[in-house]
């Protein structure tokens, strides 16, 4: 009996490690979706809670990362629907970006541009450009055909390009 418990415990530990290993990646993706830390980590926490409680539905031979991203996509959609009544501003943090490789102004332009995109456009650009997911996988996560993934990606990137090349809107600071 002791041995069996021990084996079960060890197996559980492996599943735990699998999910825990994905957390930094989920946090990066959530940050690109939400553009600020608190909201992003909240999204990750909701995603993990759902993942833990439904882990028995995950097929061990399937892609864990894609499964987690699908959960996060659904949660993100829900949060967009909830926020749709309020103003469509995305707030982001006032942070020091001078330490980055690129021109701080270009980074500021990107942040401004991402904030002005529709959340779904931001999601698509983050999945393809930041997460570098194959289009076939994005198609499964967002539940849209591959052709639609590419055409929407093209429109979203074009929009972002326009937003980045014009004067930024004043940023709305987050009030705690």
């Amino acid at each position: 009996m002791f041995n069996r418990n021990r084996v079960a415990e060890m197996a559980n530990k492996d599943w735990e490690t699998l999910i825990v290993d994905q957390i930094p990646g989920l946090r990066r993706y959530a940050r690109a979706l939400c553009l600020e830390q608190d909201g992003a980590d909240e999204l990750v926490q909701d995603c993990l809670e759902r993942a833990w409680s439904r882990f028995h539905t995950w097929k061990p031979d399937s892609n864990l990362r894609a499964w987690l991203f699908t959960i996060m996509h659904n949660l993100f959609l829900n949060s967009i629907r909830r926020q749709n009544n309020g103003p469509g501003f995305v707030s982001f943090e006032d942070r020091d970006i001078s330490a980055h490789h690129h021109d701080p102004l270009a980074l500021r332009d990107l942040e401004n541009g991402l904030a002005r995109l529709a959340p779904q456009q931001r999601e698509l650009i983050a999945l393809a450009g930041l997460e570098q997911m194959p289009y076939s996988e994005i198609s499964k996560i967002l539940d849209i055909p591959v052709g639609t993934v590419m055409s929407r990606l093209s429109r979203s990137r074009e929009k972002l390009r326009q937003f980045m090349s014009i004067e930024p809107t004043p940023t709305i600071k987050k009030v705690k």
Binding site: P24, R27, R28, A32, L107, L110, E111, G129, L130, M164
Partner: peptide, 21 residues
């Protein structure tokens, strides 16, 4: 756009994960 996104967000990967997560 892709390069800038990595520059802006890749730092998160090396941030310590909050305990609640």
């Amino acid at each position: 756009q892709n390069d800038l996104m990595h520059d802006l967000f890749d730092d998160v990967l090396s941030e310590p994960v909050p305990e609640k997560l």
